[in-house]
Design a protein around this nucleic acid. Structure first.
Length: 553
RNA sequence: GCGCCCGUAGCUCAGCUGGAUAGAGCGUCGGACUUCUAAUCCGAGGGUCGCAGGUUCGAGUCCUGCCGGGCGCGCCA
């Protein structure tokens, strides 16, 4: 019996009480929340429906809970139901009803935990979107890990997700980048506003290697060569880093294309007609204060040139035009000031900013080494990059460490901890659980013991640790659902850590395989099925985070 | 000054969108391997949930005001 099934049973029971006249309610609630109590004595599951419906029913909560408990106790799969505290209803489930879940999970395999709740939703998820003027920074690495996990989680909930990367390969930043390359190729210092990093030197060398003629060109032409070649090289490197990190985008979208295609101009025209703009001091403004912005924003400068906001507007329209109902954008905390003007843009186009647009802000990342912050010196251009992080702790640890925390938290990654191949490293703790599970299944195969099949007796899984584990596995679909609804993939990681712990405790107390000369029993087969189910869940969960589920360690 | 995020055990962080006695890992101390991976498990200790009010049967969670930290506030992108 899963929490969903129990929830349904409780609803049915409420409906029965109403029908039989034992209870008066304006309506039986759509959803009944069933939660896992923290304290063992409170049963396998608990619900607070009685507390919530007491007022409507005109009954004291405990009285309502009691009527519900009396009827619920007879329901299929329910072993006991009792009233507790101010009106909680604590439920114990039949072992047989609960054990059945192991078979369901194994049968569902990789589909276990997925749902259709977002089916039909076309989601455009934009993240990273770093301009190709340097290697991916630590912050970009966080969005890469979280964004990809986000995409996987949304897809698991049935959404049709496109991963998109927006970049700008022309304009002021790129000019500074190409001027820096040019300067370094001549052994000169980079300009005051240039990019000082050591990678500039390397790229400059590569460009010169590929285009030896660049030396003889006049400044303007040479700079253009450095721009075209340099951006290409830099972007290739970024894409390769992302790919190695396990993150591949469906679309790389160029801002330049928006200008070239005339979409920016079209967007401006549509904004003019959208009712959220006005002209002042010779410029066209967006009334973004309508959406809690600090001030209105200029769309078209006095000289007639559009600001970058127009490109954003055009880009938004482009996405909507490609059929995406939801435009989701992951941004760093340094861009939070962006939200309100973007919402105003969506509204100016007649969209509902609460439904069509979603901007997710994530906080920054700091590194710790030997207990001290690893500082990056901006002046020297020594930024901490994705590759630095991967080199220090590996891809799995990096992805896991970056997705394990709420996006709202500024995080500190202790490199010494995450590099350790030891149990204080959460990613190893979870991966070890998977390796252990896989190992049991391998040994079982060697012994010729198979997981229970048609003859499976779910009632055999009645040990307390088996119940704990089954209930943990039963939580998984709800965790995925919640992670998808709240856009919080870190919940998957936390769940995996809890579930790994629950499994390790089970392993400690419940022998799975026959020892020595022991004959295999139905209990061995049943436990083996539970092991297989657990492996499925851990593997599925790690998969949502883009972290490997190793067969051995 | 204004806006967004954070403040929970010595440290790093969860807390199921208002529920029961606030959790986990690490660190500290003490235990458990002749047999499925001890990269594990068991036990102990550790808290004015930043502060002060408010909302209600009930607040770490919601509201208001302070305090502290991070990040932003261009006709730059």
């Amino acid at each position: 019996m899963t929490p969903e099934q129990l929830s349904q049973t409780i609803r049915d029971t409420l409906a029965e009480l109403v029908r039989s006249g034992d209870l008066t309610l304006p309506a039986v609630p759509e959803r009944v929340k069933v939660e896992r109590p923290k304290v063992k004595e409170h049963g396998d599951y608990a619900t607070n429906v009685a507390l919530q419906l007491a007022k409507q029913a005109g009954l004291p909560p405990r009285e309502l809970a009691q009527r519900l408990a009396d009827r619920l106790a007879d329901a299929d799969g329910v072993k006991a139901a009792e009233v507790a505290g101010p009106g909680f209803l604590n439920v114990r489930v039949e072992a047989a009803a609960q054990g059945e879940l192991a078979r369901e999970i194994v049968r569902a395999g990789t589909a276990y935990g997925t749902s259709r709740s977002l089916s039909g939703e076309r989601v455009n998820l934009e993240f990273v979107s770093a301009n190709p003027t340097g290697p991916l920074t630590l912050a970009s690495t966080r969005w890469a890990a979280v964004g990809d996990a986000q995409a996987r989680v949304l897809a698991a909930a049935g959404a049709d997700v496109t991963r998109e990367y927006y970049f700008n390969d022309h304009g002021a930043q790129i000019d500074r980048f190409s001027r820096s390359l040019l300067a370094r190729s001549r052994g000169e210092d980079v300009p005051e506003d240039g990019y000082p990093g050591a990678y500039i030197e390397e790229i400059a060398q590569q460009v010169v290697g590929a285009r030896p003629d660049v030396k003889g060109l006049p400044d303007d032409d040479a700079q253009e060569v450095f721009r075209a070649e340099g951006v290409g090289l830099m972007f290739d490197e970024i894409k390769r880093s992302l790919h190695d990190f396990g993150v591949d985008f469906d679309v790389y979208f160029s801002e330049r294309d928006l200008h070239d295609s005339g979409e920016v101009d079209e967007a401006v025209e549509r904004l003019r007609g959208g009712g959220l703009t006005y002209e002042s001091e010779g410029a066209l403004w967006l009334r973004s204060t309508e959406y809690d912005d600090d001030r209105d924003r200029v769309l078209v400068r006095r000289d007639g040139r559009p600001t970058y906001i127009c490109a954003d507007a055009a880009y938004y329209l482009d996405k909507r035009g490609r059929g995406f109902d939801r435009v989701v954008i992951l941004l760093g905390a340094d861009h939070h000031g962006y939200i309100n003007r973007y919402r105003a843009l969506a509204a100016a186009f007649g969209d509902d900013p609460d439904r069509n647009l979603e901007m997710i802000i994530g906080q920054m990342v700091n590194l710790l080494r030997e207990g001290r912050p690893v500082r990056m010196s901006k002046r020297a251009g020594d930024v901490l990059t994705m590759e630095d992080l991967v080199e220090a702790i590996g891809i799995d640890a990096a992805r896991y460490a970056l997705t394990r925390y709420s996006m709202d938290s500024t995080i500190e990654i202790d490199l010494d901890l995450w590099a350790k191949q030891a149990n204080d490293n959460p990613v190893f703790y979870v991966q070890y659980a998977h390796a252990r599970l896989a190992s049991i299944l391998r040994n079982a195969a060697d012994l010729g013991v198979a997981p229970a099949g048609d003859e499976f007796d779910p009632g055999l899984l009645s040990h307390e640790r088996e119940g704990d584990l089954l209930r943990a596995l039963g939580e998984y679909p709800r965790v995925v659902q919640q992670a998808a609804d709240l856009r919080e993939p870190h919940r998957i990681a936390r769940y995996l850590e809890d579930t790994a712990a629950t499994f390790h405790k089970f392993y400690d107390e419940c022998r799975v395989l026959p020892r020595g000369d022991e004959e295999p029993t139905p209990l061995h087969a049943a436990r083996l099925l539970l092991v297989e189910a657990t492996r499925v869940v851990v593997a599925n969960g790690l998969g949502l985070l883009g972290v490997h589920a190793p067969e051995r360690m």
